[in-house]
């Protein structure tokens, strides 16, 4: 029996296969005359679906940090924002606000990922030794600082308007609106699935064992010869880089970035999705995120049939979201599909 048979090779490789298929289908829509037609009621599903796969990258990175290594990052949106802004500023052709350098978009995307990773490295170098709740505060405050920098330095970041004129590679290839949306969903969904495969491989390998050991007891892990600071830094930087990728892809899909897309609400949404699904389980955190984002769909449809205003509905939805977070922590601390013993919450 070869060693390959003994290693778990299931979910990760299936995700890889599915991801590659999605990318190919997306490419088919983009490069061939093949066209898709969406029934009008499906529009909103595809739109929320695109946002879901982008946020999916965020939640996978966050879960690597919190679910596996136990790092409480409550400013995850900052990496998403930095990735988005860096990509936008480098690749935007012309924008009446902020900087637009007009480089080819792949360079913009690469710099976006890099910028987020570098910020992650800087933050972890300074703060990774802090106790969980204080790390949460430092990351949260960092996100707020960047948010107000984006808003206030209008000459560079375009203020509240943000940066416009970011190239949209898929839109450039596909003129027809329906096909463009479907192709975008497949391409970005493919990226998320490939990422799922990668983090699954990483965490099923001995690498993941070390991360989980750090979460359980850092001192013991050190005394077994593991350089835990290195691992924590890596997990933090990988999560940040994934968020940077998500931000870059979002900018290239949306054609613009603005502070309004990168609020603390994003961090809250992915945290609740992760905890609801069950931390330390990649597919569970995606499913949890799907539930939370599904609520947006429900409220959109409900809005059509009830006579109340959109504001009221948004408030009600957020009350529900807040209470879900409270209830999950109290009654199901391991989430819906999480393993309570693995998370140490079965006491």
């Amino acid at each position: 029996m070869s060693a390959l048979d003994k290693l778990p090779a299931g979910h990760g490789d299936r995700a890889l296969l599915a991801g590659v298929v999605c990318l190919l289908v997306g490419a088919l829509f983009a490069f061939t005359p093949m066209r898709a037609q969406l029934p009008s009621f499906l529009y909103v599903f595809v739109e929320v679906g695109i946002l879901f796969v982008v946020y999916g990258l965020l939640v996978l990175g966050l879960d690597l940090q919190y679910g596996h290594a136990g790092l409480v990052n409550f400013g995850h949106v900052v990496f998403f924002a930095v990735g988005g802004y860096a990509t936008a500023m480098l690749s935007a052709q012309d924008s009446f606000s902020g900087i637009a350098l007009g480089y080819p978009w792949p360079i913009g995307l690469a710099v976006g990922v890099l910028a987020a990773a570098v910020l992650g490295l800087g933050l972890s170098a300074t703060s990774i030794r802090l106790r969980g709740d204080f790390l949460a505060i430092v990351t949260l405050a960092t996100a707020e600082i960047f948010h107000s920098v984006f808003v206030n330095f209008q000459g560079i970041f375009g203020g509240n308007v943000g940066i416009l004129g970011v190239p949209r590679p898929i839109a450039a290839l596909v003129a027809d609106g329906d096909t463009r949306l479907v192709a975008t969903l497949f391409v970005l969904g493919g990226v998320t699935l490939v990422t799922l495969a990668a983090v699954t491989r990483l965490t099923e390998a001995p690498y993941g064992r070390v991360l989980r050991a750090i979460r359980a007891d850092e001192l013991v892990t050190r005394s077994l010869g593991k350089s835990t600071i290195t691992y924590k830094t890596q997990a933090f930087v990988y999560g940040a880089a994934l968020a940077g990728l998500a931000g870059g892809l979002f900018a290239l899909y949306n054609g613009a970035v603005a502070p309004g897309f990168f609020t603390i609400q994003v961090t809250v949404t992915i945290w609740i999705g992760m905890l609801l699904g069950g931390a330390a389980n990649h597919r569970a955190v995606l499913a949890g995120l799907a539930i939370i984002m599904g609520l947006r769909l429900v409220s959109r449809f409900a809005l059509d049939v009830t006579p109340v205003s959109g504001d009221v509905f948004a408030s009600i939805r957020l009350i529900v979201v807040g209470m879900i977070l409270v209830a999950v922590i109290r009654y199901r601390p391991a989430g819906i599909w999480g393993n309570a013993q693995e998370l140490g919450v079965d006491r």
Partner: peptide, 21 residues
């Protein structure tokens, strides 16, 4: 401390929106 912090974040969102409502 971490579950308590998270609970307070959830409670804060709910309260803030209830007040807005």
């Amino acid at each position: 401390p971490v579950p308590m912090l998270l609970t307070s974040i959830g409670l804060g969102i709910a309260l803030r929106n209830a007040i807005r409502l």
